[in-house]
């Protein structure tokens, strides 16, 4: 039985086996045999150039800050597309959610989730994390609200207009911080050379523009992803059907 679909599957299997072998090679070599090339420059120069303890954050927001701006605009474009796609439908909101037990206990847990998200964003230059991760955790609060309390509760708490404003001002903040470097005579998104304080490595206030850019990206990603989910979920339920019992 040699149908084209089977051949396609055979090709996919061969591709996955090759990829798996490649990944296995990456696992079995020891990472500290000696670092060469650009990696050595980044690892040795991060503390001197940026003052950030997290090398990944330094690469994302300092050495390759312009790429991060591009990534953030990808999310912006996605949100715009989804909002346009779902704007023409009839606008419905649901106000019934899950039972009283779930609502009450989740009310106790949501502040901790928000605290965790803020700490991931603010500590992005010190520990693993950053704007993208913390913003995604923020956006899961929207999912919890929409599922547990109904999407009208979410719209009443944080209105979609406010979310759009937060997202746009996050993007604006990113570009403005980049323009500071341009004003002082450097390149776009210049960090230390543009006069931002380096601080002591390991302190909260260190790393020049990196924490500010983390906050900007966190605003953008959090508001953007929650707008994405909200605009998909707002037409989900039918308000004419009877509300489920509260017990």
């Amino acid at each position: 039985m040699k149908s084209p679909r089977n051949l396609q599957r055979l090709g996919a299997l061969a591709l996955s086996l090759a990829l798996g072998w490649w990944l296995w090679q990456g696992v079995t070599i020891s990472p500290f045999q000696g670092i060469t090339g650009p990696a050595a420059r980044y690892i040795h120069g991060t503390a001197r150039d940026t003052g950030a303890a997290n090398v990944v954050a330094a690469i994302l927001f300092d050495y390759r800050g312009f790429d991060t701006l591009g990534e953030a605009s990808v999310i912006y474009t996605t949100v715009c597309g989804v909002a346009l796609l779902f704007a023409k439908r009839r606008y419905r909101r649901s106000s019934h959610g899950l039972s009283f037990i779930v609502k009450r206990s989740m009310a106790l847990l949501v502040p901790f989730i928000l605290l965790y998200a803020s700490s991931i964003i603010v500590m992005g230059h010190l520990s693993p994390g950053g704007g993208f991760q913390g913003g995604s955790v923020m956006a899961t609060v929207t999912i919890l609200f929409c599922v547990i309390y109904g999407s009208s509760f979410e719209a009443a708490r944080v209105s979609p207009k406010v979310k759009e404003t937060i997202e746009s001002s996050g993007a604006l903040l990113f570009v403005l911080i980049g323009l500071v470097g341009l004003v002082t005579g450097g390149a776009f998104l210049t960090n230390i050379a543009a006069g931002f304080p380096r601080g002591t490595m390991g302190q909260l206030f260190s790393g020049g523009t990196i924490p500010l850019l983390n906050i900007a990206v966190g605003m953008k990603v959090g508001a953007g992803l929650s707008t994405l989910f909200y605009s998909m979920v707002k037409i989900l339920e039918d308000p004419t059907e009877s509300s489920p019992p509260e017990v």
Binding site: L98, I101, V102, F112
Partner: peptide, 20 residues
């Protein structure tokens, strides 16, 4: 502690959704 807070919640919600 967080597992203790969230796990009964999730199973309660799943059981209720199954019933309805």
């Amino acid at each position: 502690a967080f597992l203790l807070a969230t796990n009964p919640l999730a199973s309660h919600a799943i059981a209720r959704a199954c019933y309805h």
